[in-house]
Design a protein around this nucleic acid. Structure first.
Length: 821
DNA sequence: GACCTGCTGCGGTGTG
């Protein structure tokens, strides 16, 4: 047995006094920290991952200062605690302060983020606390300060909280870059290596998450997991009248009466919905159905004013609310102890998201997390059965790290340039130590430096794009105006322009999209934050409203992201259909769906997981072709376009396209030339990339992606805070840049990135290829139902339509030939 | 005949 250290004794003694018995994995984490390792701690929520690492830091501190660890003195910044949410910082800070106070350790905790008061930030400038809780953005703001290395002179460790949340995004890249600089600083100054720890929920690629955190060349990284399992129960709420349950739809308000008993039986319930408008509708409908809930029911989503949201969070904490209807805005965060049940309305689209939400209830070790699943249409019950099995088998999604994000790199270099300037060879080395930029070539690096100094081939004539000056290997930003503008723009979250909504009498309610309000006339009523509001006028980019007594109001919809069904869930879903008609199935969801399955089998077929079902149906609308890969709407959208293109090469034919997460439809006014003989060829993965480029309008998708890239890279100034430029301006200037680069600087890396992102994120190219390969191994079943089937109905209902005509295609092909010859 | 779509997250005009 290894001799325990002094710090170890102090901490275990303190815990024993409080009658707290640490988990084995917590002790493992302390030990690993103390021994100078870096790594990731992985355990279910509510098991004290955070606590264990913080205690590890304290043990290390006591060990280093055994005699005077309690002496009041200023020690400088020792520990950086990175969190993705400002809201987490406050709670965490409070908890840490408590421990420090009780142990009498000479440490102070500070918070650094946009919502810390100016005075606190000014004080930090003079004297940093020993522990600083910070967001990735604020960390980069620290790097943008003059003489920033001073700040980190005593830094020993960085802990990244909720690393699974950051890893798949450009915010994660910001963390990678900041870590590379901090490691570089410590090495330059000959100090012991930086300890880096991540705290993560379970994801499919935890090993990769470790590599991203520590860089691909790390050697001392370890993953500390617990074998303790969280007990999670998923219970589907089966519609009382299955026969009348809709085949399509997404709101699920039909199930509302069956949600009420759950709410009544629990102390506090969180009701998760998929969209903001859906949460508004549920809130209103619940109050209508059960007026007794007035005052005990609240609403929480991303477009509701921060102050109102904070009020709801506090009220939840204090246990005065019976239920809260919310979106993903309450996925993470504050430890809502009083929550004892969770209702998920509609598909969560992925296993990880379901686990995350279930974990909001029973948030202590040993407690059971219970989540009720409320289907919004019949087939969603199959998803519920699939989710249950996926949870049992722990099939959890991976979060793919972002690679070669040139925009974030440009921003980072500008950050370093406006502080002390940077030594290019040194920074190049550091940057290449990160996972994101490990394959950055010297050529690309040169392009990036020259882009920052000259504006590149296309923008060389405009002075405002000559941002940096070069002296030997050093690069600086001398312009104070550019430096100030840059500090205002640090970060990778690019939001759409939203208008604030405010009562005439004062008081903010939330935000709303420009496009929505432009369709309203003064006097019209709409709903926001659960209130009925009458639109009065727009003044200074603010929508002024008064209370409305109107019976009918419009619920605004927002142009949000569209999360596709995850690959894991899709796979599980296909598997579930194997059991659909089997007498052996025990899943209550599948049993309830028997009548629907029988109808589907009678009219058409239920595909097994090694089959691809295609339905050909003729109606007065035309000739329909329905295909069911169950791979999420993004893959379906591209597959539909690809198939339409390939069919149109057999004979000129025009299609309209519709899709959902289960499948897609091609509709034409002439018979579709797809047969048992040519089906496999039509779904082949051969020539995928070339045919994708002709069938899908990749340029348009890339153009949309380019907008965010241009903002992050600092090419578009979004205006000063408070005086937001209208979205139109943003859109047009980014579109202009896109054109200019396409015409005069086709080698532009940002342009290349836009296309990469379009293929990777908007078309899920990798998943598409895998799907086509799977289809090649499957048998294709073509049926000819006499009328619409339960499977195709939801797609038919989907209003989103793309049209593509072979005429247009011919034009494109002609152009292509002209360019080539 | 069956249908009201589309999440979250951060930063903040300044050094004598």
């Amino acid at each position: 047995m290894q001799q325990q250290s002094h710090g170890w004794e102090v901490i275990t003694g303190w815990l024993a006094d409080k009658e707290l018995k640490p988990f084995r994995f917590q002790e493992d984490a302390w030990k690993a920290y103390q021994q100078g390792h870096s790594g990731i701690v992985n355990a279910p929520t509510g098991f004290g991952k955070t606590f264990s690492l913080f205690l590890g830091a304290l043990i290390a501190w006591i060990d280093a200062h055994p005699k005077d660890y309690q002496r009041k003195q200023k020690n400088g910044l020792q520990l950086l605690w990175v969190t993705p949410l400002r809201a987490l910082a406050k709670d965490l800070g409070r908890a840490m302060e408590e421990v420090i106070l009780e142990l009498g350790i000479s440490w102070q905790v500070g918070i650094r983020s946009g919502d810390t008061p100016l005075a606190a930030r000014a004080a930090q400038k003079k004297q940093m606390p020993e522990v600083l809780i910070i967001t990735p953005e604020s960390l980069h703001l620290l790097l943008a300060q003059k003489e920033y290395p001073q700040v980190f002179k005593h830094l020993q460790a960085v802990v990244v909280d909720e690393w699974h949340e950051l890893i798949g995004s450009k915010r994660g890249v910001m963390v990678e870059l900041a870590l590379s600089r901090l490691r570089g600083l410590l090495t330059q100054e000959g100090r012991p290596p930086l300890k880096t720890w991540g705290i993560s929920a379970t994801i499919g690629n935890l090993d990769e998450a470790l590599e991203v955190l520590l860089g691909p060349y790390h050697s001392n990284g370890i993953i500390i997991r617990t074998n303790l399992k969280k007990n999670i129960q998923l219970q589907s709420v089966i519609p009382h009248e299955m026969e009348n349950y809709p085949w399509a739809g997404h709101l699920g308000t039909k199930m509302l009466p069956q949600a009420l008993p759950i709410i009544e039986d629990s102390q506090t319930t969180l009701i998760f919905t998929n969209t903001r408008s859906q949460s508004e509708i549920w809130y209103q409908s619940l109050l209508r159905e059960e007026p007794m809930l007035a005052g005990a029911l609240a609403l929480h989503h991303g477009s509701i004013d921060m102050e109102l949201r904070i009020w709801v969070e506090e009220a939840l904490h204090n246990g005065i609310l019976k239920a809260v209807v919310c979106t993903a805005s309450l996925d993470l965060g504050v430890d809502f102890r009083p929550v004892n049940s969770v209702i998920q309305v509609g598909s969560p689209k992925g296993v990880a998201r379901l686990l995350q939400r279930a974990g909001r209830s029973g948030h202590q070790p040993g407690a059971v997390s219970k989540i009720f699943f409320l289907p919004t249409h019949a087939l969603e019950l199959v998803e519920a059965a699939a989710l249950k099995t996926a949870m049992e088998e722990e099939v959890i999604e991976s979060r793919m790290p972002v690679l070669l994000a040139y925009d974030v790199l440009l921003q980072y270099l500008m950050t370093l340039a406006v502080s002390d300037g940077f030594h290019a060879p040194q920074i190049f080395e550091e940057v290449r130590q990160t996972y994101c930029y490990q394959h950055l070539t010297e050529e690309e690096w040169k392009w990036i430096l020259s882009f920052l100094t000259t504006g590149g081939d296309a923008l060389a004539v405009y002075d405002e794009f000559k941002k940096l000056e070069r002296q030997g290997d050093y690069y600086y930003c001398k312009s104070r105006m550019l430096a100030m503008r840059h500090r205002l723009h640090i970060g990778t979250i690019v939001s759409d322009a939203m208008l604030k909504v405010k009562f005439m009498s004062g008081g903010y309610i939330g935000v709303i999209e420009e496009g929505f309000i432009s369709r309203l006339q003064p006097g019209d009523s709409f709903t926001l934050a659960g209130r009925n509001l009458e639109f009065v006028l727009i003044k200074d980019m603010t929508v002024l409203v008064r209370k409305s007594n109107a019976k009918r109001t419009i619920v605004p919809s927002y142009q949000g992201g569209r999360i596709p069904l995850s690959a894991n869930l899709g796979r599980m879903l296909r598997r579930k259909f194997n059991e659909a008609l089997s007498r052996k199935t025990k899943d209550p969801e599948l049993l309830a769906l028997q009548p629907l399955f029988r109808l589907q089998e009678e009219l058409s077929h239920i595909p097994k997981d090694d089959e691809l079902l295609i339905e050909k149906i003729d109606t007065k609308d035309g000739y329909h072709l329905f295909v069911y890969p169950f791979e999420g709407r993004l893959v379906h959208q591209v597959m539909a376009a690809l198939l339409a293109y390939r069919l149109s090469r057999i004979q000129p034919i025009t299609f309209s396209i519709a899709m959902n997460d289960y499948g897609f439809e091609l509709l034409s006014d002439q018979p579709v030339p797809l047969t048992t003989e040519n089906a496999k060829t039509l779904f082949s993965a051969d020539n995928l990339l070339t045919e994708l480029q002709t069938s899908v309008n990749a340029t348009e998708t890339a153009r949309r992606k380019f907008r965010d890239i241009a903002v992050i890279a600092g090419l578009i100034f979004q205006g000063y805070p408070g005086k937001h430029k209208a979205n139109r301006h943003l859109q047009s200037s980014s579109s202009l840049l896109f054109n200019v680069f396409s015409d005069y600087d086709p080698q532009n890396l940002l342009l290349k990135q836009a296309f990469n992102e379009a293929f990777f994120y908007e078309m899920e190219e990798v998943r598409l290829r895998e799907t086509l390969e799977r289809i090649a191994r499957s048998s294709i079943v073509i049926t000819h139902p006499q009328k619409l089937t339960p499977f195709c109905f939801p797609i038919k209902v989907d209003s989103l339509r793309d049209t593509m005509t072979s005429e247009k295609l011919e034009d494109r092909i002609r152009k292509l030939i002209a360019v080539n010859s």
